[in-house]
Simulated assay, not measured.
Amino acid sequence: MTIKIILLVAFFAVMIGVGVYCRKSATDVNGFVLGGRSVGPWLTAFAYGTSYFSAVIFVGYAGQFGWKFGVASTWIGLGNAFIGSLLAWVILGRRTRVMTQHLNSATMPQFFGSRFDSNALKLATSLIIFVFLIPYTASLYNGLSRLFEMAFNVDYTICIVVMALLTAIYVIAGGYMATAINDFIQGIVMLVGIVAIIYSVLKIHGGFSGSLAALAEVSDPEVSTVPGVFASFFGPDPAGLAGVILLTSLG
C-alpha cells in the first residue's frame, strides 16, 4: 500500500509540475487553447486517444460490453480504432487544422461561426459541446473515482474532489499544452497497464488458447444459455454487437 501511495503522489506531482512548466505556452488565448499550434502529432494523438479511450475502455467497455459480448467485444475496439479514430483523422484531421488556421479559429464553435458566417451556428455548436461534455466528464470522474476507491480504499467523494482540483490546477496553469503532455504521460501508463493485464491473463491460463478455453467455460443465463458463447467470434448477440460498434464508432 505504501508503494501505491508513493507512486500516486509522484504521479500527482508530475501532473502539477507539467502544468507549471507549460505556463510559458499559455500566455495568450491561442497558447492556452491550442498550445500555440505547436503540440505536434504524437502529443495530439495521445491527447485524443486518452480522452477517447480512458475510463470508458477500462471500466465501461471492459465491465459492461466485455461481460455481455465476451471476446467478441474486441470488434467494438477495432471499430472505434479504425472508424471512430483513424477514419475521422484521415478525413477531417488535416483539413480541419488548415481551415482553422486560415480562419484564425481557436475553438470549433468559432470555426463554424467563421466558416459559415453564422452566429447562430456558433451558439448552437457551443451549446451542444457544453451539454454533452457534462455527462461525458461525469462518466470519466465516476469511473476513475470508482477505481481509486477500490484500489486505495479512499472515499468516492474525496476521489472526485481531488481529481477535479488537480485537473483544474494543471489545466488553468498550462492550458492545452499541459493537458497534451499529461495525456501523453497517462497514455504511456495506460499502454503499460494494458500490456500488463494481457500478459497476466495469458500467463495464468497458459497462453491465448488456454485463455479462450477458460472464457468458453464462463456462463451467464441472463445473457445466453449457449455453451462457450463468450469465446465465439461474434458473441451471444451479433445484432446488438453491430449496433454498439456503429453507435460508439460514429456517434
Rank of each mutant, 00 (worst) to 15 (best):
Leu121Arg: 10
Gly17Ile: 00
Pro109Ala: 07
Leu250Glu: 10
Ala88Gly: 14
Ala239Phe: 08
Gly207Val: 02
Gln110Arg: 04
Leu147Glu: 11
Asp220Cys: 12
Ala13Ile: 02
Phe11Glu: 07
Lys68Ile: 11
Val29Ser: 14
Thr157Phe: 14
Phe112Arg: 01
Met163Gln: 13
Thr44Glu: 04
Pro41Arg: 02
Gln64Phe: 15
Ile16Pro: 00
Ser145Gly: 10
Phe32Ile: 04
Leu202Glu: 05
Gly36Pro: 03
Met1Ala: 15
Arg115Asp: 00
Gly19Ser: 01
Thr74Met: 15
Ile169Leu: 04
Pro135Gln: 07
Leu121Met: 14
Thr100His: 01
Thr157His: 13
Leu166Ser: 06
Gly36Tyr: 01
Met163His: 07
Ala164Cys: 10
Phe58Tyr: 13
Thr167Gly: 13
Ala151Asn: 12
Val189Thr: 12
Ala138Pro: 08
Lys4Glu: 12
Val39Tyr: 00
Leu34His: 04
Met99Pro: 03
Tyr136Lys: 04
Gln186Lys: 05
Val20Gln: 00
Leu147Pro: 02
Lys4Ile: 07
Ala13Thr: 06
Phe82Trp: 14
Lys68Val: 13
Ala239Pro: 02
Arg94Asp: 04
Gly35Thr: 05
Gln110Lys: 02
Ala45Thr: 11
Leu133Met: 13
Asn142Glu: 03
Pro109Arg: 02
Gly235Arg: 03
Val14His: 00
Pro109Asn: 01
Arg37Asn: 12
Glu217Gln: 14
Leu133Val: 04
Val161Ser: 10
Thr74Val: 15
Pro227Asp: 11
Ile185Ser: 01
Ile76Tyr: 11
Gly175Ser: 03
Val98Met: 09
Asn104Met: 04
Ala168Arg: 01
Gly251Phe: 00
Gly31Val: 03
Arg23Leu: 07
Ala13Arg: 01
Ala168Glu: 00
Ser219Val: 06
Ala81Val: 13
Ile172Gln: 02
Asn30Asp: 10
Asn80Met: 14
Gly113Tyr: 02
